[in-house]
Amino acid sequence: MIYWLQRVGALPAAQLLPFAHMITITYFGSLKLLQPSGSEQLEWSGGTTDDLLSALRGRGPDWDEALSPGRVFKLALNQQLLHGPAPLSAGDEVAILPPVTGG
C-alpha cells in the first residue's frame, strides 16, 4: 500500500519513513570544533547511544579520533548523565560532554 501511495504521489517521500525520527545532539568543549554550531538535528531510525557514537565516528577521521572508545567523555540523555548505553527515541536530546578541567 505504501508503495502505491508513493508511486502515485499521494504522499511525500518523507512521510513514508515511519521508522525515522529526529534527535538533537549537542556538543560541548573541544567537540564544538567538529560541529561549530554546537548542535544538530539528526534523522535517526532507532538504536542506542552506542549506535549513535558509531555513526558519528563514521563521519571521518576527526570524528573517529574525537569519539574513540579510548577517549574520556560523558553522554547525557535528556539532561540526565548516562552510565551505559541507552535507547534513543524521537525527540531525545543527546549531549556529548568532554572532560572539564579547572582549578
Rank of each mutant, 00 (worst) to 15 (best):
M1V: 13
Q6F: 04
R7H: 10
V8F: 14
G9C: 11
L11T: 10
A13F: 11
A13C: 08
A14L: 13
A14F: 04
Q15T: 12
L17P: 00
L17W: 02
P18T: 13
A20R: 14
H21P: 01
I23A: 01
Y27C: 02
Y27M: 03
Y27F: 05
G29F: 08
L31D: 00
L31Q: 00
L31E: 00
L34A: 09
Q35T: 10
P36H: 12
P36Y: 09
S37N: 13
Q41M: 12
L42V: 14
E43W: 04
W44S: 01
D50G: 10
A55H: 13
G60Y: 03
D62Q: 14
W63R: 04
W63G: 04
E65F: 06
A66W: 01
L67E: 02
S68L: 07
R71L: 12
R71Q: 15
V72P: 00
K74I: 13
K74M: 15
L75H: 05
A76C: 14
A76T: 08
L77R: 07
N78K: 13
N78G: 08
N78I: 11
Q79S: 11
L81H: 11
H83N: 14
H83I: 12
A86M: 13
S89W: 09
G91W: 01
D92V: 02
E93W: 00
A95Y: 00
I96C: 01
P98H: 04
P99G: 12
T101R: 04
T101A: 07
T101K: 06
G102H: 10
G103S: 13
